[in-house]
Measured scan of single mutants.
Amino acid sequence: YTAFGDLEVFLHGLGLEHMTDLLKERDITLRHLLTMREDEFTKNGITSKDQQKILAALKELQ
């Protein structure tokens, strides 16, 4: 049995499950992801397509 964390649930909701391992390897938490700047997305290997999905979701949360 494995409990999913906030990061996994957030990514799954956006259809971005493939990013879970990448972000965990880089010790990026959901809190960090929510406050990242555009250059940090790129530096951490997050594609512009995935970045757009994340940023759109963040706008909806605000």
Rank of each mutant, 00 (worst) to 15 (best):
Y1A: 14
T2V: 03
T2H: 03
T2K: 13
A3S: 14
A3F: 10
F4G: 14
F4K: 15
F4L: 13
G5T: 12
G5C: 10
G5H: 09
G5L: 07
G5S: 13
G5Q: 14
L7I: 06
L7D: 02
L7C: 03
L7W: 02
E8Y: 07
E8K: 08
E8S: 08
E8G: 08
V9H: 15
V9A: 14
V9C: 13
F10N: 03
L11A: 03
G13I: 03
G13V: 04
G13Q: 14
G13S: 15
L14V: 14
L14H: 13
G15A: 04
L16I: 05
L16N: 01
E17A: 10
H18F: 05
M19G: 01
M19K: 07
D21H: 13
D21A: 11
D21F: 04
K24M: 06
K24T: 05
K24Q: 07
K24V: 06
K24L: 07
R26S: 06
R26Q: 09
R26G: 06
R26M: 00
D27Q: 12
I28M: 04
I28Q: 02
I28H: 01
I28F: 05
I28D: 04
L30K: 07
L30W: 08
L33K: 00
L34E: 11
L34A: 14
L34P: 03
L34V: 11
E38P: 14
E40C: 03
E40K: 01
E40T: 03
E40I: 03
F41Y: 10
T42D: 10
K43Y: 03
K43H: 06
K43P: 04
N44P: 02
N44R: 08
G45C: 05
G45L: 03
I46W: 04
T47A: 11
T47F: 05
T47Q: 11
S48W: 07
S48A: 14
S48R: 12
S48P: 11
K49L: 07
K49Q: 10
K49M: 10
D50R: 00
Q51P: 02
Q51C: 09
Q52L: 08
K53H: 03
K53S: 07
K53D: 05
I54Y: 01
I54V: 08
L55R: 13
L55E: 12
L55G: 13
A56Q: 11
L58E: 13
L58T: 15
L58G: 15
L58S: 15
L58H: 15
L58I: 13
K59F: 07
E60L: 14
E60V: 13
E60W: 15
E60H: 12
